[in-house]
Every structure is written in structure tokens, then in C-alpha cells.
Nucleic acid binder design. Structure first.
Lengths: 340, 340
DNA sequence: TTCTGGCACTCCGGGAATCCGAGTGCCAAC
DNA sequence: GTTGGCACTCGGATTCCCGGAGTGCCAGAA
């Protein structure tokens, strides 16, 4: 019931509508795309497509507009990822290769993604939970005050101030430093938190109190998933190209303020597959007019976070999907290098 | 020529216009504010005010709208800072006191400021240049790879990876660590960069090469003002309340993407005074319809950065000024505490 | 069957015409 | 210097109207 030509018609409708932002009629369709049939034929197909819910007519005597279901079919069956141009590939590699640290990578990715797709880009900071402890440093600021620095394999650095009840000698601190690192270096963060719990019993008795306080703060820092919720957003200015302000721009602007909402949009599914969420398929009814193209990233199978773009349902899916995937691959590679 | 009653009239016009977003006429004016004179009298005053350029008539037979010059007079002569309510004070202190590190302070400030003023808030990260070195840590990852961690008095942590030509022994690294810290701990960052330059000559001859590479990267990190250019932005959703999308929202959205532009808007003057830049007074002609209320912050006289809000020229200046000043004071205090 | 040309019909979008009323400027009187 | 009265202006909203793009349906051709 959905034969090849109907699919061609649907594809043409989607492409034209995305390009022009106006309902597309049968005549314009056959002119722009060489469909080799007459407008009347196309009209019949359109009527069928409408019956099946793939396209929709704003009102009698207007052209057709794809429905969410229509976009879905387009994305699933009809879209072929638009290959990146050489210039775009070069832009990605030169920009991201020049990043000096983790923050830099994230921020440059956001910028890149928004410029490539001319849409709003979102990049989640790499999660702590999968990373391993690279090093823990204890710095004595005053005899009773120690700064803990936790360096993770992803390049993230967490710092915490600790006030001790009893002043600590440098030698004790040095021993604790060794002990802490032996217990946790190279270990996945979740395991490290557990391993540190046993530490107070393993050190010399007079160091137990200090060890307790320090490991307490460390495990807290490790299990503190606050940084998991961090996201970077860019390309907001692209919202200006949206048509309808109240239904499209305002809710999205509000969503962009709520990082939790953004994370949900990106889909914390944990899978690294490229996913497209179209309009009402998403979790928020206010955002029924926006789509999300997202994917996870991370070296090999290690999912460290997600990134993607959000935009109107009427968006360039093939282009966005290609850009999202390309950036995710690059980011994954860079994180892998920094990790080795 | 600008007597007291005319000033009253101007104030009333500004207040009404800010509240209603509509040109205000003589009759509505005397009704809303108990001016004790007749509309006709007010009309005369209005005509005079218009002659002097403080207000403007969009077209004959419309009400009056303040000009930039009018707002300027209002801000300079007529505005009294709207005191913060007890609830607002409490919101500020509880939120900011709960901040755990520098990033957290900045992000919470932005959020706070945008919620208090219902406008777009901008907070510059504290500059490195005024801060002192608290500690430098050298962590050996592999024999030829060292991670440098630079901890500053503001709480900022910078990290750099260094590849050495020759493998380094732990003992050598420990000696260098001591040397580096002796040379720079407690010293202002600019001076520290200079002091580190002499270090290679001061260490044992066989350590000179390592010292050179390490201090090179360190001084580079110290003089790298990239982080000076970092700003946090929040409350973009408030743009939705703007009237005219194309003249007001779009240019501002674009400006918000360019952090350099934002910094210029905040005014890097280096002074800590509360400044108000109204419409065309600012450096960008595209932003002729937006005003900036900004101030520096930092403990005592030490200017560490700026923060403020941007919004339409038609904004609540007294409220915004009060909120900006209050938040700046709190941030300054918190940074001071973290510093002690 | 499937496609095509023809035809009557629908209805949105935009331009012209119209109306309403808030607001003004001016003037004479207080 | 202030006030009430009054004629005038002009933008914004409303209504009306029309063209044209687009449709659905049907009968005939391939």
C-alpha cells in the first residue's frame, strides 16, 4: 500500500518543505523533482499518504506538510546520511585537535556542531562514572587544611577542601598520599570509592582519623554526579530562524535553561546509537514542535556522554545526523587519545 | 529649564513605560501618579521635555516614550536603588553559600541574577591575573609524561600535560616540585611567571632541561588569558518577553554567542563601580535597543571580573541595579572567604 | 487497472477601505 | 503659570473583497 512512488513523493515533500518552509502542492512538486508523472497522479498519491497519516493538510486547498509520522518514515527509510564535505571534515579535525583540555573539547564541539547544522547544539560533559582514577593528590595548605585533587582518566579534575580535626605532619600526609593512590589508581571510580572505604583500617592506627575524613570526602566527590548533569549549549542564535516564536522558540529557550531537561532530551539511554526523536516522540509536550538528533560518544564501547542538536521538526535530518555522528566520532577519538 | 515637576513627569513616564511597554499619554499619567496638576499642564511639560530630547513621540497623536537620554537622566538623577526584599536576600545568601567550588559560584550567580531581574545575566569568570599561586603539583604519569596542576588563590585549577624528552626519576621530580613551589607559592601570577623563568639556572645542572620544559608550560599557562575570556550566561528564556524580535532579540542572541562581545559589553574598565550603559551608549550599533547594567566584583579593591544583566533599554533600572550590586557583593565576599 | 486532463470548488493571504479613539496642540479664560 | 475646551491627527484594529494556488472528483485515454 505504500509503493515506491509514494515513498518518492513523501521524500520530495519532506525535502521541499524543509527547504521552503511552506506547504508543498502537487504542481510545484512535479516541477522541482523530475517525478515523470502528472500532478493529478501525485495528488492521488498524496491523498493516500494523507489517509495513512504521513502528511497533513493545514486546510483545504493548501499544500501538504509532513506529519511527525511522515518524518519518521523519511528518517527510517528514505534518508541517506549526507556525507560531510572535505572542508567540513577539515574544520572538525583542525578545531578539535587544537583543544587543550576537557572543557575546551566540550566547548569547541558545541560551537562546531551548531555551526555545522545551524541549529542549537548540546553536548553533555563526560560522565565520571565510567572513568578511572588517574591520580589523587593531597596538598597541605595549613596543618589542618588539605586540598584534595582528584584526576580522572577523562581529564576531569575535581578538587575539594578538607578541614582536619588534628593537625597533620607532612610525613603522615605523604604516607596517606601513597596509600590512597595505591588503593585507587587505575581503578574505575565506583570500585575506587569502595576500595577507599577500607583504607582507614589499613593505615597506621594514628592515621586512621585523617584517613577517614579524607576518604570520606573523596568517595563523596566520586559519587557526586553533579558533573554528570553538566551540559554545554551553543548556537542559540539559530533559533532566530524559527518561524513561530510562541510555539517553537519560547518553550525551547526555556528548556535550554534547564539542564536536566536537556539531558532527558539527549536521552540518557546509555546506548551509543544515533537516535532521532521527532516532535511528540519526545518526553515533553511543550516541545512537540522540536526534534532531537543525538548520539552517545566515548571511546569504543564506553559510553561517556551524549551530544546532539535540537531544532524544529522541520529540519534537515540527513545533514544533522551526519554532523552529529561525525562530531561524536571525533570527540570519542580525542578522549581516547587523552586517555592512553 | 528642567524644574522639579518636569523631572517628576519624566520619572512617571519612565516608570509607566517600563511597566506597560506602551507610549504613555498625559491623561493616564495624572491618573496613575498623583501629580496634582491637570493633564494640560503635563502636556506642556511633555512638550518641553521633548524639545530637550528626553522623550520622544513615535508619531503625532501618540503618547511619549523615553529616549536614551531620558533614561540616562532617570538613572543619574531620579532612580533610587530598589532595596532587596528579605526573601531575595535570603535567596542570595542560601544559594551562594551552598556553592562548593568556583564553577559552582559562577553558575549559581548567573542563575540567581537572571531570576532576580528576569533578564539575561552574564558573569565573567574571575581573572587569573590578580590571583596568586597557591600550589603547584607535578604528577608523574609515565616517566616521560608529567601532569602539571596549577592551583590559584581564587580556587581555579589549571592543568597541563607535559611530555619530557628524557625520562625523569621520582626524586628529581620531587625536588623540582619543591623548587617550583618555593619560587612561586603565594606570589602574584604575573610575578610568578617571571620568577619561574630563573628557575632552570637555580636547580641542579642535570635537572635544567626538565625545569625548562616545565616552567615553560607553567608560565604559558599563567599568561594564558583564555580563561579570562570565559563568561557564563543565563536567563536567555527571558528574551521571550521582548517585544520586537528582529530588532531586539535576534542581535542579542547573536551577541550572547560571542563571549568576546559580552566581555566588551560588561566593560572591562577594571573599575568596580556600578555602571549603566543605555542603548546607543554601548559599543555595538546592533545593540542600540539594549542596555547593560554591570559592575566589577572581587574582594576589597581587587577587581577579579565583572557581572551584570542585559536587557531592553526599557527595563527596570532601579531593580536591576540593586540586584546586580547585591549579587556582586555576595560573590566578592565568597571569593574572599575561599581565599583566606 | 492506472494515469491524465479538465473542471468546479474551497479557502487562505493580502491589499484597500473604513472606523474608532487616544492623544495632541493651541487658545482663551482663570 | 494653570486649566478646560475643542478641533485635529493618525495609527491600529476591523472588515471586506478578490485572486490564485491547490484540491477532489470524474470521465476518458493508455
Amino acid at each position: 500500500m505504500v509503493d515506491d512512488r509514494k515513498l518518492d513523493v513523501l521524500r520530495a515533500i519532506v525535502e521541499d518543505y524543509v527547504a521552503t518552509e511552506e506547504p508543498v502542492g502537487s504542481k510545484a512538486l512535479v516541477e522541482r523533482h523530475g517525478l515523470g508523472v502528472s500532478p493529478a497522479t501525485v495528488r492521488n498519491d498524496m491523498a493516500a499518504l494523507e489517509d495513512e497519516g504521513y502528511i497533513h493538510q493545514p486546510h483545504t486547498s493548501a499544500g501538504r506538510v509532513p506529519t511527525d509520522k511522515g518524518y519518521r518514515l523519511f528518517v527510517d527509510k528514505l534518508a541517506t546520511l549526507k556525507p560531510m564535505s572535505a572542508a567540513e571534515r577539515r574544520a572538525i579535525s583542525t578545531l578539535l585537535d587544537g583543544a587543550v583540555d576537557l572543557d575546551d573539547v566540550v566547548q569547541k564541539s558545541v560551537r562546531l556542531l551548531s555551526q555545522l547544522t545551524r541549529q542549537v547544539a548540546i553536548v553533555q560533559y563526560p560522565t565520571l562514572s565510567r572513568s578511572t582514577v588517574r591520580h589523587i593528590e593531597l596538598v597541605s595548605l595549613t596543618p589542618t587544611r588539605v586540598m584534595l585533587i582528584l584526576i580522572l582518566s577523562t581529564g576531569r579534575v575535581e578538587q575539594r577542601l578538607v578541614d582536619l580535626e588534628q593537625p597533620i605532619a607532612d610525613t603522615d600526609l605523604a604516607e596517606l598520599r601513597v596509600a590512597v593512590n595505591q588503593a585507587s589508581a587505575g581503578v574505575q571510580i565506583a570500585a575506587a570509592a569502595a576500595a577507599l572505604g577500607d583504607l582507614p583500617d589499613a593505615v597506621r592506627p594514628h592515621q586512621a582519623d585523617w584517613a577517614r575524613t579524607i576518604t570520606g570526602v573523596l568517595t563523596e566527590a566520586m559519587s557526586d554526579h553533579r558533573s554528570d548533569e553538566r551540559v554545554a549549549v551553543g548556537g542559540t542564535a539559530n533559533l532566530a530562524r524559527y518561524g513561530d516564536f510562541d510555539t517553537a522558540v519560547r518553550p525551547l529557550l526555556e528548556a535550554l535553561e534547564e539542564h536536566v531537561v536537556l539531558l532527558k532530551l539527549l536521552g540518557e539511554s546509555g546506548t551509543d546509537a544515533l537516535t532521532v526523536r521527532i516532535g511528540h516522540e519526545g518526553p515533553y509536550s511543550e516541545l512537540a514542535a522540536t526534534s532531537v538528533v543525538a548520539t552517545g560518544y566515548g571511546p569504543q564501547e564506553h559510553h561517556l556522554g551524549s551530544l546532539g542538536v535540537v531544532g524544529p521538526t522541520r529540519m534537515d535530518y540527513p545533514g544533522s545526523m551526519a554532523a552529529v555522528r561525525a562530531v561524536a566520532r571525533y570527540v570519542s577519538r580525542i578522549l581516547d587519545e587523552g586517555n592512553q
